[in-house]
Measured scan of single mutants.
Amino acid sequence: MEVRTIKVFTTVDNINLHTQVVDMSMTYGQQFGPTYLDGADVTKIKPHNSHEGKTFYVLPNDDTLRVEAFEYYHTTDPSFLGRYMSALNHTKKWKYPQVNGLTSIKWADNNCYLATALLTLQQIELKFNPPALQDAYYRARAGEAANFCALILAYCNKTVGELGDVRETMSYLFQHANLDSCKRVLNVVCKTCGQQQTTLKGVEAVMYMGTLSYEQFKKGVQIPCTCGKQATKYLVQQESPFVMMSAPPAQYELKHGTFTCASEYTGNYQCGHYKHITSKETLYCIDGALLTKSSEYKGPITDVFYKENSYTTTIK
């Protein structure tokens, strides 16, 4: 009895394709271990004539594949690729409408935090270190965002349907971005203890939790000093293409032309909904596939993004 075979390709990165001759009487799992086709788990399936010449994702289970996976995804987590594939199996079914010149995501599976993050990423200057993220990001900007969303979920250790947080998501993504040249110098002034300067680099240099107003941050924000008295913390120097200011959701007025974009969060910790506000020729609110415009805006804002380049204080 002759062994019926077909020729397929296996890959971990969709760049390096490895030619395989597979036995049609055995499952993919018996031949390769966990195997995925377009995100779908085909591990328990036997090869079919229609699979001839198709590319299958496999887990990096030998040295060659491990090197290829690390170079593309910059992670050695053995569960990463499987999590990416199972997320992709959902995100490829989502709709990605162009809204006001940006790629958004039609609401499904509690994905409003991903839509808000995706919209924000198209408006701030950011370059990702893992080629996987950078490639998928370019495709997302062009309207094909399924891979990018699935990668975000995998890097953030999230599953489809789980509630997510924009600030946490951005923080994970910033860790995989090139923020080497970003720098922030802060000064804390206390009447009792004097003053202390701190220099922050990388992710810490672009994120701040405690106030939404970048102007206020430049002037000074009140913080408790270690001595128990009130101290003032203010920005001395900022070198970065953008800054992200966050605070627990509270009524906040966004003035046209003073910011790049913002995240609105309605609801409580267990259950809520994100919308995205962007400042173009007027203010726009993007909620999944829905767009509304207004000249002014007041609502429960939790993150505001500002364009920056270089700032030095005039406070002496």
Rank of each mutant, 00 (worst) to 15 (best):
R4D: 12
K7L: 12
V8A: 12
V8N: 10
T10C: 12
T11P: 06
V12P: 07
V12Y: 05
D13I: 08
N14R: 15
N16D: 08
H18V: 10
H18Y: 12
H18Q: 10
H18C: 06
T19L: 12
T19P: 13
Q20N: 13
V21T: 13
V21N: 14
V21L: 14
V21S: 12
D23H: 14
M24F: 11
M24Y: 06
M24Q: 14
M24D: 13
S25L: 13
M26A: 14
M26P: 08
G29V: 06
G29E: 12
Q30W: 15
Q30R: 14
Q31S: 13
F32A: 09
G33P: 10
G33W: 09
P34D: 13
T35F: 09
L37P: 05
G39W: 06
G39E: 11
G39N: 10
A40H: 12
D41C: 09
D41W: 02
V42R: 05
V42W: 14
V42E: 03
K44E: 15
I45D: 15
I45G: 12
I45M: 14
K46P: 12
H48R: 11
H48V: 13
N49A: 12
S50E: 15
H51N: 08
E52S: 12
E52C: 10
G53F: 10
K54Y: 14
Y57R: 02
Y57N: 07
V58H: 09
V58K: 02
L59R: 07
L59F: 11
L59S: 11
N61K: 13
D63H: 11
T64M: 06
T64N: 12
T64G: 14
T64V: 12
R66A: 13
R66S: 12
E68R: 08
A69W: 00
F70P: 03
E71R: 09
Y73G: 05
H74A: 03
H74W: 11
H74Y: 07
T75N: 11
D77M: 08
D77K: 01
D77Q: 07
S79M: 15
S79D: 11
S79L: 11
L81V: 14
G82D: 12
R83K: 13
R83W: 08
R83D: 08
R83C: 08
Y84F: 12
M85C: 06
M85R: 05
S86I: 12
S86K: 09
S86H: 09
A87R: 07
L88I: 04
L88P: 07
L88M: 02
N89A: 12
N89G: 09
H90F: 11
T91Y: 03
W94V: 04
K95F: 10
Y96T: 10
Y96V: 00
V99D: 04
V99F: 14
V99Q: 00
N100F: 00
N100W: 15
G101R: 01
L102V: 01
L102C: 00
T103G: 00
S104E: 12
S104W: 03
I105D: 00
K106Y: 10
K106H: 10
W107H: 08
N110G: 06
C112K: 03
C112Y: 01
C112L: 04
Y113K: 01
L114T: 03
A115F: 03
T116L: 10
T116Y: 00
L119A: 12
Q122E: 06
Q122D: 10
Q122F: 04
Q123V: 03
Q123P: 06
I124R: 04
L126H: 02
K127C: 10
F128L: 02
N129T: 10
P130N: 05
P131S: 03
P131G: 11
P131D: 06
A132T: 09
Q134H: 10
Q134D: 02
A136W: 09
A136R: 05
Y137V: 06
Y138A: 14
Y138G: 14
Y138E: 15
Y138R: 15
Y138D: 15
R139F: 03
R139H: 08
R141I: 10
R141G: 10
A142I: 12
G143N: 05
G143D: 03
G143V: 03
A145H: 00
A145C: 08
N147S: 13
C149I: 11
A150R: 01
A150Y: 00
L151W: 07
A154I: 05
A154K: 00
A154V: 07
Y155C: 00
Y155K: 09
C156S: 09
C156W: 08
K158W: 01
K158G: 04
K158H: 01
T159S: 13
E168G: 06
E168P: 04
T169R: 08
T169G: 10
M170D: 07
S171H: 15
Y172E: 12
Y172W: 05
F174L: 10
Q175L: 08
Q175K: 12
H176R: 10
H176A: 06
A177Y: 04
A177G: 03
A177N: 01
L179A: 08
L179G: 01
D180S: 11
S181I: 00
C182G: 14
C182D: 15
R184W: 09
L186I: 15
L186K: 08
N187Y: 04
V188T: 15
V188Y: 03
V188C: 08
V189M: 07
V189E: 13
K191Y: 11
K191D: 15
K191V: 11
K191F: 04
K191M: 11
K191Q: 14
T192F: 11
C193Y: 06
C193L: 06
G194V: 03
Q196N: 11
Q196H: 13
Q196D: 10
Q197N: 08
L200W: 00
K201P: 07
K201V: 11
K201T: 14
K201A: 03
G202I: 03
G202A: 06
E204N: 08
A205R: 01
V206I: 10
V206G: 04
M207F: 01
M207E: 05
Y208V: 04
M209D: 08
M209N: 12
G210C: 09
G210W: 00
T211Y: 08
S213R: 13
Q216V: 07
Q216S: 10
Q216K: 11
K218T: 01
K218F: 00
K218Y: 03
K219D: 06
K219N: 09
K219T: 09
G220Y: 00
G220H: 00
V221I: 14
Q222H: 08
P224H: 13
T226F: 10
T226V: 14
T226R: 14
T226S: 14
C227P: 05
G228L: 00
Q230F: 14
Q230K: 12
Q230M: 15
Q230S: 12
A231L: 03
A231V: 05
A231C: 01
T232Y: 08
K233Q: 11
Y234M: 07
L235I: 09
L235Q: 01
V236A: 06
Q238E: 05
Q238H: 02
E239P: 03
E239I: 12
S240A: 05
P241K: 08
F242N: 05
F242M: 06
V243P: 01
V243S: 02
M244K: 07
M244R: 10
S246C: 06
S246Y: 15
A247M: 03
P248E: 06
P249D: 00
P249T: 10
A250T: 15
Q251S: 10
Q251R: 11
E253F: 01
L254T: 06
L254F: 05
K255E: 14
H256W: 14
H256L: 15
G257W: 00
G257Q: 05
T258P: 03
F259P: 00
C261M: 01
C261A: 07
A262P: 04
E264A: 08
Y265S: 06
T266I: 09
G267I: 04
N268T: 15
N268G: 09
N268Q: 07
Y269W: 13
Y269S: 10
Q270T: 13
G272E: 00
H273V: 02
H273E: 01
K275N: 00
H276F: 15
I277N: 08
T278S: 12
T278C: 10
S279V: 03
K280H: 04
E281D: 15
T282I: 06
L283T: 02
Y284C: 14
C285G: 04
C285K: 08
C285E: 02
I286Q: 01
I286F: 02
D287F: 02
D287T: 04
G288C: 02
L290E: 14
L290P: 01
L290D: 14
L291F: 15
L291R: 02
T292F: 13
T292I: 05
S294W: 15
S294K: 12
S295C: 12
E296F: 15
Y297F: 04
K298E: 05
G299H: 00
P300C: 13
I301R: 07
I301W: 11
T302E: 00
T302H: 02
D303R: 02
D303T: 02
V304E: 11
F305S: 00
Y306R: 08
Y306D: 00
E308Y: 13
E308R: 03
N309C: 14
S310A: 06
S310P: 09
Y311I: 06
T312Y: 13
T313D: 11
T313H: 13
I315V: 15
K316S: 15
K316P: 14
